[in-house]
Simulated scan of single mutants.
Amino acid sequence: MKYICPICGYKDLDEPAYDKYGDGSYDICSCCKFQFGYDDDVEVEEGVFMEIPETHKIYRLNWIKEGAPVFNTEYYPKKFQLNGKVKKEYLIEQLKNINIDYYNINK
């Protein structure tokens, strides 16, 4: 069974990004490079951490602004890549896996 990345919508994670307690798997998405349990552990001030959905949103926006680079080009389908980045037409479809509208990404 494969799982969906909550950042980029890639449908090939080997295990869920988070367990039933909300703990990250420490897996790294082959597409967007997000490491669950590490990249979402953002301290905004001493002892105060950003909510995980907010870290996902910020990371996703920055990743897309960088052109949606593929982290591991060997494991991400070649037909969906162009010059090491997710093809825009596929990115639009991939984000639908997590109910994100590419054209309204900032909302």
Rank of each mutant, 00 (worst) to 15 (best):
T73K: 15
T73V: 14
T73W: 12
T73E: 15
T73N: 13
T73P: 04
T73H: 13
T73S: 13
E74I: 14
E74Q: 14
E74H: 13
E74N: 15
E74F: 13
E74W: 12
E74R: 14
Y75R: 15
Y75E: 13
Y75M: 07
Y75Q: 12
Y75K: 14
Y75D: 11
Y76K: 06
Y76C: 05
Y76W: 11
P77I: 07
P77W: 03
P77V: 09
P77Q: 04
P77K: 02
K78T: 08
K78Q: 15
K78S: 09
K78E: 15
K78L: 11
K78R: 13
K79P: 00
K79A: 11
K79F: 07
K79W: 06
F80A: 06
F80R: 09
F80G: 00
Q81D: 09
Q81I: 02
Q81K: 05
Q81A: 00
L82V: 05
L82K: 15
N83S: 14
N83F: 05
N83C: 03
G84L: 02
G84D: 07
K85H: 12
K85D: 00
K85R: 12
K85N: 11
K85C: 09
V86I: 14
V86Y: 02
V86R: 00
K87H: 05
K87V: 00
K87I: 00
K87M: 04
K87E: 08
K87Q: 13
K87P: 02
K88V: 02
K88M: 06
K88E: 13
K88A: 00
K88Y: 03
E89T: 09
E89C: 08
E89Y: 04
E89N: 15
E89R: 11
E89S: 10
E89F: 05
Y90G: 00
Y90P: 02
L91W: 13
L91M: 06
I92K: 15
I92G: 09
E93S: 13
E93V: 08
E93M: 12
E93T: 12
Q94T: 08
Q94H: 07
Q94V: 01
L95S: 04
L95C: 05
K96L: 05
K96E: 15
K96M: 08
K96N: 07
K96Q: 13
K96A: 15
K96Y: 07
N97S: 11
N97W: 10
N97T: 10
N97P: 01
N97R: 11
N97M: 09
N97L: 04
N97D: 07
I98K: 10
I98F: 10
I98C: 11
I98D: 01
N99D: 14
N99F: 09
N99G: 03
N99V: 01
N99T: 01
N99A: 10
N99W: 02
N99R: 08
I100E: 04
I100P: 00
I100L: 04
D101I: 06
D101G: 01
D101V: 01
D101Q: 03
Y102G: 04
Y102E: 04
Y102I: 01
Y102L: 09
Y102K: 05
